[in-house]
Amino acid sequence: MSIIRIKNLHKVYSQKQIPVKALNGVDLTFDEGEFTALVAPSGAGKTTFLNLLGGLDLPTEGSVEIGGVRIDQLSSAEKTKFRLTNIGFVFQAYNLIPVLTASENIEFIMELQGISKRERAVRSRELLEAVGIPDKANVRPLQLSGGQQQRVAVARALASKPKFVLADEPTANLDSKSTENLLDIMLQLNKKENITFIFATHDARVVKMARRVITFEDGKVINDEVR
């Protein structure tokens, strides 16, 4: 059953003199439990697509429906709430709140959701274990390696028990070893907990692991294959 339906999605950035057509009519559906890579060179509209999917920006045309909710029609406050409970984000870098420790970063999301202190502590420990760095609970992001930071980011993205995780080039700043580790962890979570992952990437190592690969070019889907 598809949880995400995207119809005729267009996005035109017109702040500058020449309007930029970042998305040019995208139709896609995503099912629960997918492990999907959006592949495209830089500037092809990957980030734009994920931002629209996550309700961080408004489409110029078209609709985004998640679990029956038209999120492009929600108010800004409703979208924030929707993100908090339905979507986990992992960005390329600077994902974490620098003044909070790894476990505090994870717990913060849960605190925003109103989860009790006790439960927060338990879940943050579980998540740090799941991403393989239980010993880094009390370390601040700047003392962690890039790979460790991204693992905390994944743990944080999962803290709110979201319907799916959107990751925008999560491995762009990582070496091969860290990339492999991070992908392993995400694949494990996908298999064990049936968490839906959607990546934007142009990293061949990520593409290799994906079960579905969607290729973008000039704001359009040019290829969509399931392996």
Binding site: R83, F89, N95, P98
Partner: peptide, 13 residues
């Protein structure tokens, strides 16, 4: 950037 991240992860305005 950090404030954008906080908004993305669900911090209300």
């Amino acid at each position: 950037h950090e404030i954008g991240m906080l908004m993305a992860i669900g911090m209300k305005r």
